[in-house]
């Protein structure tokens, strides 16, 4: 039972990290990144491929994080000077190209067969069940990232981000280089997703392009929007609720007369519906502050 809870919690922790990256972009800065999973994939594959070709695991992880951040820069350059919806369109395409690349460049990624047999941090040195260590590692990192992002968003830098979200003409009129702030937010958010990708690989000990379908992005979205955009506490709460929902509905499978593909479809329909209803009636989510996140309403 404890082992099971630990295993579930690790997934919650990884999704919370992944979603905090998105919260920095969407919640605090108002950037619509519909391709967040692409950065998760870059982090995971870079970590694994570097390690498999002989690099120490810490160096591999760092490279994954840096490369994910760098791709944030590449995606941001053509899109962030223009209206906000261009980012949404380009990122969704970007994440699909990343997935297609992983699927088709078999010389590098082994395509649909996926990758395994890579190291995990300190694995040889841990005398007890590695999952307990991974639990500590993931939640330790979540705590560090949470504190760092909180510090960032409460700094003068973070206040500029929020003003960009509410009305970017205002910081621009005050002489702030809005484009640079947006790029920075996207890079940091993407790097955080890259870290989540490394943890995802450690947790599954196997990665394949199937783990990086567009739906993963929208799990992060519902986590952020449900918990309360621009509230990192809410994001963690959102990760717990969404994972409980996911696990719960899998148990429900045994009691309802639905095929497994129907259950999966129903689950995504519920998430879609929740996204619509929240944006229509409670855009600030569970823990968000209504007076802060106006979205023009």
């Amino acid at each position: 039972m404890i082992d099971y809870l630990v295993a579930i919690s690790i997934i919650v922790g990884i999704f919370a990290i992944f979603a905090i990256g998105l919260n920095l972009e969407w919640g605090f800065t108002g950037l619509i990144n519909f391709g967040h999973v692409g950065f998760l994939a870059i982090g995971a594959y870079t970590t694994v491929l570097m390690n498999l070709s002989g690099a120490p695991i810490w160096l591999s992880m760092t490279s994954g994080v840096v490369l994910a951040g760098f791709f944030g820069l590449l995606v941001g350059i053509p899109t962030l000077r223009l209206r906000e919806d261009y980012l949404a369109i380009v990122t969704i395409g970007f994440s699909e190209i990343v997935r297609l690349f992983l699927l088709n460049e078999e010389w590098l990624t082994r395509g649909p067969m996926g990758l395994f047999g890579f190291d995990r941090p300190f694995e040889a040195m841990i005398p007890f069940d590695y999952n307990y260590f991974l639990f500590i590692l993931v939640f330790g990192s979540l705590a560090v990232i949470y504190l760092l992002v909180e510090k960032l968003v409460h700094s003068p830098w973070g206040r500029v981000l929020k003003s960009i979200r509410e009305d970017e003409d205002v910081p621009a009129a005050l002489g702030k280089d809005v484009f640079r702030y947006k790029i920075q937010a996207l890079m940091i958010g993407s790097a955080i997703a890259g870290l989540a990708g490394a943890f995802l690989a450690f947790n599954m000990q196997y990665i394949s392009p199937r783990n990086f379908i567009p739906m993963e992005t929208f799990y992060a979205w519902i986590i952020v929007v449900l918990g309360g955009s621009a509230r990192n506490k809410g994001t963690i709460l959102g990760a717990i609720i969404v994972q409980s929902f996911y696990t719960g509905t899998r148990y429900l499978q045994d009691y309802v007369p639905l095929a497994s593909h129907q259950m999966a479809a129903l689950r995504i329909m519920v998430i879609g519906l929740l996204l619509v209803l929240l944006m229509m009636y409670k855009p600030q989510g569970l823990l968000g502050r209504k007076e802060e996140l106006t979205l023009g309403q």
Binding site: A88, F218, W221, I271, G272, L274, L275, V276, M279
Partner: peptide, 10 residues
Amino acid sequence: IIISIGLSLI
């Protein structure tokens, strides 16, 4: 935009 992606999932 976010509502439209929700509708698309539905």
